[in-house]
Simulated scan of single mutants.
Amino acid sequence: MIRPVYVHDLAGLAAHARRIRAALPERVELLYAVKANPDPVVLRTLAPVVDGFETASRGELRRLAEVLSDRPPAAYVGPGKTDEDLAAALAAGVRRIHVESPAELRRLGALAVAAGTPARVLLRVNLPVAAPGASLVMGGGPSPFGMAPAEALECARRPPAGVEVRGVHAHLASGLAAPLAGSVAAAVVRWAVAELGAAEVNVGGGMAVDYSDPAARFDWSGYGRTLAELLDAYPRLRLRIEPGRSVTVYCGAYVTEVIDVKRSHGEWFAVVAGGTHHLRTPAAKGHPQPFTVHRRHGADGPRTDGGPVTVVGQLCTPKDVLSRSATAGVVGVGDVLVFAMSGAYAWNISHRDFLLHDPPVFRTGDPREVAAGWAARPVRP
């Protein structure tokens, strides 16, 4: 038995990031949201392509300092920032701190004055912009994220000492197709410029990723054209976006081995090494993780009949489901399964200490080659 392995395709990641950058107007700053995948190899691969990194914790600030000591974070975001968090952001030289509330702004001002370091901020605003069809909504209604438009206007008019208000941040939803993402961005920009006179606007991320169709991709070219039209309308505007999942999700694969195959009450189950304590995405998102089957050399153990199969892990809970598939074909003991689209919100959001199983191994390369090499090894008796 080989321990499950995460494989990062760094060449594929770099090529995908370059395509995104090429599809965007030159005046749009592309920030990578570190929360999606903070693996050092991912950060190093993206560093030459993106314009900066968005961080959301002191841990992410430390990770970025360790991996890219010459790249101060472009943004520091998130609700519930403590004084220690804000002080760390100031000390790290973060270019823009995204402020979530009037109280947070006052605390930041006091810390900036004490440190003798001006805090340059964007005000996160919860604008009443509809995002029908979004998979995750964080604005447009009651929410812990951001401040009401009237509060933001008051903060901009009377900022505390030590604070320079540069503009607006609005991340209102995730799972947005390109046309909807473009219309949301346009609505945010129009409000920020008309009401606040903002010179800088960060319209967030949230670009859609379709786990049911790994070949489908967000229409970056169409989105780029919409942003170009916005910049034409507001030629002095500094515009930023901060995608995470849509940048790295395709570069990672989780590769593991089938331990057991069984039939229960008429349904097939394949039990694999590892599980959702390694790859939390399908449980968190409520979807089947796409996977392919690599037949194991010399495997002669139990196998399914090619019908629908539920792939589960080793945890003592019925929620440990990685995927349900009606099209996987025959799955047998010893076979190697490659779970695609595991490059974002995967290992880094997993409940890795549940049952204290061994962690997965990490390596770089082509996941298909890794799986093929694994499948070519004889099954141990």
Rank of each mutant, 00 (worst) to 15 (best):
M1N: 03
V5Y: 01
V7S: 00
L10M: 09
L10S: 05
G12S: 07
H16K: 13
R18V: 09
R18E: 15
L24A: 11
P25G: 13
L30Y: 13
Y32K: 09
A36K: 02
A47M: 09
A47Y: 01
F53K: 03
E54L: 15
T55H: 02
A56W: 02
R58N: 15
G59L: 05
E60A: 07
L61C: 06
L64M: 03
L68S: 12
L68M: 14
S69D: 14
P72F: 08
A74L: 10
D85R: 06
A92P: 02
V94M: 07
R96F: 13
L105P: 07
L108H: 10
G109N: 12
L111V: 10
G116C: 12
V129F: 01
P132Q: 12
L136D: 10
M138H: 04
M138T: 00
G139D: 02
P142G: 11
P144V: 10
F145S: 08
E151V: 02
L153S: 01
L153Y: 00
E154Y: 00
C155P: 02
A156H: 10
P159L: 13
V165F: 08
V168E: 12
G175R: 00
L180S: 15
S183N: 08
A185R: 14
A185T: 08
V189M: 10
A194Q: 08
G197H: 07
A198F: 12
E200C: 15
N202I: 13
G206R: 13
M207I: 04
A208Q: 12
A208R: 15
V209Q: 11
R217I: 08
D219I: 03
D219N: 03
L227G: 03
D232P: 01
A233M: 06
R238E: 15
R240V: 06
R240N: 12
R240S: 15
E242K: 02
T248Y: 07
G252W: 02
A253D: 08
A253N: 05
V255Y: 06
V258P: 07
K262D: 00
K262S: 02
S264K: 00
H265A: 00
H265C: 00
E267I: 08
E267L: 03
A270N: 09
V272A: 04
V272S: 05
H277Q: 14
H277T: 13
H278S: 05
P282D: 04
K285N: 04
P288W: 00
T292S: 14
H294M: 03
G301R: 06
P302S: 06
T304A: 05
G306S: 11
G306K: 05
G306Y: 00
V312W: 05
G313L: 04
K319D: 13
D320C: 10
V321K: 09
V321R: 14
S323Q: 11
A326E: 14
V330Q: 09
V330T: 14
V330M: 09
A344K: 09
A344G: 05
S350A: 15
S350K: 00
D353F: 07
D353H: 09
L355R: 11
L356G: 13
T364H: 08
E369R: 12
A375M: 01
P378Y: 02
P378K: 08
